Amino acid sequence: MNSEHAAFCSSEEWAEAIRVHVIPGVVGALELGEDVLEIGPGYGPTTAELRQLTPKLTAIEIDEQLADRLAGLYPDVTVVRGNAASLPFENERFSAAVCFTMLHHVTTEELQDQIFAETHRVLRPGGVFAGSDSRASDDLREFHHDDIYNPVDPTGLADRLRRAGFADPKVTVDEDHFMFEARA
């Protein structure tokens, strides 16, 4: 992650946007249940909010330094350093899984699809998978200079989630972002 991007993702401005817009917009009235998986929490502003919404939160983070930082900040959260395309959890463990503004950091569409399939595998039947991300733009591509930037096309996301095994995918799109939810 470039330094400008890292500074923004660790800023109070971003944490406020997460608190006020992202978490309420995605989680809203969803029942997450008692054992939630967060995929790719990065600097952790979503983790800070999610840990208040479920009795048991597990976060999987691929970056070792960020995983260590999260574990230090949130001792009540189980932080696992690992790759969400190969989740180290048993089948049907989690009541829900969430991911926020991280899918565009996954290098290929195939790896994104593998994350969807792995998430489906670790969710209990009926468990919800929900998340959000930014829509592609030239400004975001520039902001992600020297970063991985592989935005998801929301128009094909419901079909991709179905192929991963999810039922009833819903994708909501606005000018800059999209949100999704689907059931295992």
Rank of each mutant, 00 (worst) to 15 (best):
R93W: 08
V80Q: 01
R93K: 10
A85C: 04
T101R: 08
S86I: 09
S86D: 13
L87I: 00
C99G: 12
H105W: 12
F100M: 12
M102A: 13
L87M: 04
L103G: 02
A85E: 05
T107I: 00
N83M: 02
P88C: 00
S95H: 07
T107E: 15
F94Y: 15
N83Q: 14
M102T: 09
E90Y: 05
S95Y: 06
A84P: 04
R81W: 02
M102Y: 11
F100V: 06
V98F: 06
N83D: 15
V98I: 06
T101F: 13
H104P: 05
T108R: 07
H105D: 12
F89Y: 08
N91Y: 12
H104S: 11
T107D: 10
R81H: 13
S95C: 05
M102I: 01
N91A: 11
E110D: 14
E109L: 15
N91H: 14
V98T: 10
T107S: 15
G82V: 07
F89T: 04
V98S: 09
H105T: 12
L103A: 11
E92F: 04
R93H: 12
A96T: 00
H105M: 14
F94T: 10
C99P: 10
N91S: 11
E110C: 06
H105N: 14
T101V: 11
N91K: 05
S95K: 01
L103K: 08
V80L: 01
E92S: 13
T101K: 13
E92Q: 08
V80H: 03
T101D: 14
N91V: 04
M102F: 13
A85M: 05
G82W: 02
E110N: 11
V98L: 01
R81F: 07
E90I: 01
R81D: 07
H105G: 14
E90V: 08
E109D: 15
E109N: 15
H104N: 08
E109A: 15
N91C: 03
T108E: 11
E92P: 03
V80N: 01
M102P: 00
C99V: 15
C99T: 15
A96I: 02
P88K: 09
G82N: 06
S95M: 09
N83V: 09
V98R: 08
A84S: 02
N83L: 09
A96C: 05
E110T: 13
A96H: 05
N83T: 10
V106L: 05
E92T: 04
A84F: 09
N91T: 08
C99I: 10
F100S: 15
A85N: 06
F89I: 00
S86N: 05
A96G: 03
F89R: 06
E110R: 14
A96M: 07
P88N: 02
E110K: 10
E92D: 13
T108L: 06
G82A: 05
L103P: 00
T107W: 12
E109V: 14
A85K: 03
E110W: 12
C99N: 12
A96P: 08
P88V: 00
M102G: 06
T101W: 13
H105V: 02
A85L: 01
T101A: 13
S95L: 01
R81K: 15
A84W: 04
T108V: 01
F94I: 09
F100E: 14
S95W: 04
G82S: 04
V106R: 04
E109R: 14
A97V: 04
N91P: 03
R93Y: 08
H104D: 11
